[in-house]
Nucleic acid binder design. Structure first.
Length: 186
DNA sequence: CATGGGATTGACT
DNA sequence: GTCAATCCCATGC
């Protein structure tokens, strides 16, 4: 997708990313779960303002914000809103499509349902690293592309975000309703 | 410069 | 259900 897709309200982008495809090398998957994060609420890294860590968040929309969580898990986000805002969409789960065997090898597990069913899992499966921070989602190496025909207008379930301690009440998690590849029930 | 807290996962009781 | 692993970085002295 081009930049204008991301330079919109974060909640809209989070919805519209469902059904889109992420490709990294030979591996790919359909996005089935996202969460929105914005500067105005304390669960977002941008809440503390512009720091070295959050520079990507405040930069150009349509780029990857990648960071390390709990010292070992890599998280992949798409930067949204105009530059200077500080917002992003966290990719939480994919339905695996291509490069399944490579992803199985990287993950060390076999079941398809367990390959990309979590934000740390999908980055491990795709081979996304901290080096991918602030790279273009149009040009790669992490490439986001439009919904396939089969994923037009997917049913969407809205719920509270997972694994955070602040602003827990905001209903900013979006799932493809009925997908078996989610990180947790809808 | 020292400290403490995660947008998680997997192993174990 | 509980819990440790592990490291970046924001914060405070």
């Amino acid at each position: 997708m081009n930049r204008s897709f991301y330079e919109r309200r974060t909640l809209e982008v989070a919805r519209d990313l469902l059904g889109c495809v992420i490709t990294v090398g030979e591996c790919s998957g359909v996005i089935v779960e996202t969460e929105a994060y914005r500067d105005c609420e304390p669960a977002c890294h941008a809440y503390v303002g512009l720091t070295p860590r959050t520079a990507t968040l405040f930069g150009q929309p349509g780029r990857a914000y990648v960071y390390l969580s709990y010292g070992l898990h890599t998280m992949l986000n798409a930067v949204t809103e105009p530059p200077g805002v500080g917002a992003a969409v966290l990719i939480r789960a994919l339905e695996p499509v291509g490069g399944i065997e490579l992803m199985r090898g990287r993950r060390g597990v076999q079941p398809l349902l367990n390959l990309c069913s979590g934000p740390g899992k999908l980055t491990q499966a795709l081979g996304v690293t901290l080096g991918d921070n602030d790279t273009s989602l149009a040009d790669g190496p992490v490439v986001f592309s439009d919904r396939l025909a089969a994923w037009r207008d997917p049913p969407i379930a809205v719920s509270q975000r997972i694994g955070i301690t602040k602003a827990v009440e905001l209903p900013w998690r979006f799932c493809v309703a009925g997908s078996r590849f989610l990180s947790a029930p809808e």
